[in-house]
């Protein structure tokens, strides 16, 4: 579908005005080096505007509005990420003032990697989330199978409960849980974090598994059984190719969500030994002068595996998260 000439010219005009405003504001009020970011954005917008005028009357399926949107999207998402990087790499004793890094020092990353406290915290997070995920997934698979394949009375209500516990403010339960853990004399142990972590992992796991299962071609399973497959053959030749990838991905996402929980970890952590990473980072913000740099560095390092995951399964992840609303 080719946009109309009129729509393209309007888009060009919009891009021009926006670029002009950005350029002026940048030149007048923004100090170097960020000035160049502003000017760069202005140049791109003006170039878009020019392109819009040039292509206005061509049959190319090119939408100038979309290009402007994508440019703004890039700025909106990337500038804060760059800022996070700048904060993380700020040399010791300096406070970064511009988005563009003015001096890059990897000390904070080095410090984060070699900090005993952060290592302990990461291990705590991974162990707790790992166990909670390992417990949640089989349960979630059974529940999702029931929801998708076994029609029964009351399943809407049951599913409503799952969604409710998924969206529930976990914070509201942090106090009672802490009290319970103290009463059971388990306060300050890693394992005491596991049952509360199920509060995060189990509803999310069920929710994602239901999404995965709904996209499974179940009629194929009937066909495989009709073909006379044994239980094992059905699992290997139907289950593995059709269900396993989605479930594996859901597992990883649940694990990541479990790792990233702050509230319960912070509420239940009595000492460095049992404090998960997010809570540790929060605590660190109150302690050190150069803390921002350390926190940002640790955050970026923590992000790395997730980005790796996104690189490996980009399509599946966007599908799973995007489609899960159905």
């Amino acid at each position: 579908m080719t946009p109309s000439v009129r729509s393209r010219l309007w888009a060009s005009g919009f891009a021009f005005v926006l670029g002009f405003a950005v350029a002026n504001y940048g030149i007048i009020r923004v100090p170097r080096p960020d000035l160049w970011i502003w000017v760069g954005l202005a140049v791109v917008l003006m170039a878009t505007s020019a392109a819009g005028v040039l292509f206005a009357d061509t049959p190319r399926p090119l939408s100038i509005w979309s290009i402007i949107g994508i440019e703004l999207f890039a700025v909106f998402t990337l500038v804060p990420l760059l800022w996070t990087f700048t904060v993380a790499t700020a040399p010791d004793g300096t406070t970064p003032r511009s988005v563009w890094p003015q001096g890059v020092s990897w000390d904070a990353f080095d410090g984060a990697l070699h900090s005993q406290i952060l290592q302990d915290a990461a291990v705590t997070s991974i162990v707790v989330a790992g166990i909670a995920t390992a417990v949640a997934m089989p349960l979630a698979i059974a529940a999702a199978y029931a929801f998708v394949r076994r029609p029964m009375r009351g399943r809407r209500v049951a599913y409503g409960l799952v969604v409710a516990s998924l969206l529930l403010p976990v914070l509201a339960l942090a106090g009672p849980i802490t009290d319970q853990v103290i009463a059971a004399d388990r306060f300050g142990t890693r394992m005491s974090l596991v049952p509360p972590a199920l509060l995060i992992t189990l509803p999310l796991a069920i929710w994602l598994c239901v999404t995965v299962f709904r996209d499974v071609p179940w009629s194929l399973r009937d066909a495989v059984r009709a073909d006379g497959a044994t239980w094992l053959q059905a699992f290997i030749r139907f289950g593995l190719p059709n269900i396993a990838p989605g479930v594996a991905l859901a597992t990883v996402l649940v694990f990541v969500a479990g790792c990233n929980d702050f509230v319960l970890g912070a509420a239940l952590s009595a000492n460095d030994e049992s404090r998960p990473l997010p809570a540790t980072l929060m605590l660190a913000t109150g302690q050190l002068e150069t803390s921002s740099s350390a926190v940002a560095a640790a955050g970026l390092l923590w992000l790395a595996p997730v980005v790796l995951l996104l690189l490996v399964f980009p399509r599946r992840i966007t599908q799973l998260l995007g489609r899960s609303y159905r």
Binding site: D222, A223, R225, A226, G228
Partner: peptide, 14 residues
């Protein structure tokens, strides 16, 4: 189904 040993063509092809 395995013991019945029948073949079936499904309406949605499967």
């Amino acid at each position: 189904p395995r013991r019945r040993d029948l073949a079936m063509v499904f309406q949605d092809y499967a």
